[in-house]
């Protein structure tokens, strides 16, 4: 199988490992330079996910947890569609790739054993969702807008409302975990995690924009968030490492 190398990653655009304003990075950031791998490598391939492994409610966070627990009641919170396309840096769609999301409920509370925030759980909201991108790289989730929440970083530090995204692409080296913020949220500018990147355009690219054209009248608003994965360069390799 021919697998071109990926275009080199722009490490000035990506967040640096050590961003001291985000306290958790202090002890968890590697200090040595990354070792550059040239030539064919197994990370230029990656796992393939079949769309038949995805359940019909998996992308509906308003219903998926409630339904799994025998409830007919929807999750509480502002109903929103979050949608967009997964593309690569060459503006090519990335179809058939797994997109996973997780988020706090409308009150800013996660359903997690280590979570201690005083906002209540919503018995009808779990907070996970997933889908496989379509032929044009498109994905779509139905969910409730998550609330902001405090986190133990400084004396009074809050995360802006956000949805965590995990995306695979077609190569293990394209693997990406990120967060989508919401247009107009004044907490974005105050958040050390959101501001881990130095280029303001990098942060701007993480902000989902209100998309009235995708909203549903008398039902829900919509936010659009496109995700760009690393693109393939022009050097083909004969990759004998994986058979799939």
């Amino acid at each position: 199988m021919n697998r071109n190398a990926l275009s080199p990653r722009d490490y000035d655009w990506q967040p640096k490992p050590l961003t001291p304003d985000y306290r958790s990075s202090i002890l968890r950031s590697p200090q040595q330079a990354l070792l550059r791998i040239e030539g064919p490598s197994p990370e230029l391939d990656g796992p393939v996910f079949e769309s038949d492994t995805i359940g019909p409610l998996d992308s509906d966070l308003i219903r998926n947890y409630a339904a799994a627990n025998g409830s007919d009641t929807d999750a509480i919170g502002p109903r929103i569609i979050v949608h967009g396309r997964v593309l690569d840096e060459n503006n090519r769609p990335v179809p058939n790739t797994l997109v996973e999301v997780w988020q706090a409920n409308a009150g800013g509370r996660y359903r997690h054993v280590n979570e201690g925030y005083l906002a209540p759980l919503d018995p009808n909201f779990g907070g996970c969702g997933r889908c496989i991108t379509g032929d044009s790289g498109e994905y779509r989730f139905l969910t409730v807008q998550p609330g902001a929440y405090p986190f133990p970083n400084g004396p009074n530090t809050w995360r802006p409302a956000h949805i965590h995204f995990s995306v695979f692409g077609q190569a293990f080296a394209q693997r990406l975990i990120t967060q989508m913020y919401f247009e107009g949220d004044p907490l974005i500018a105050r958040c050390s995690i959101a501001n881990a990147m130095t280029d303001p355009a990098a942060l701007a690219s993480l902000v989902g924009v209100l998309d009235m054209s995708a909203s549903v009248p008398m039902d829900c608003l919509a936010y659009r968030f496109d995700i760009i994965l690393r693109g393939r360069g022009s050097t083909p390799f004969e990759n004998r490492l994986e058979g799939n």
Binding site: R9, W13, S25, H164, I177, L229, R230
Partner: peptide
């Protein structure tokens, strides 16, 4: 060329 979406911590 488009820019790769910036990574954020998995939290």
């Amino acid at each position: 060329m488009l820019k790769e979406t910036p990574s954020q911590t998995a939290g």
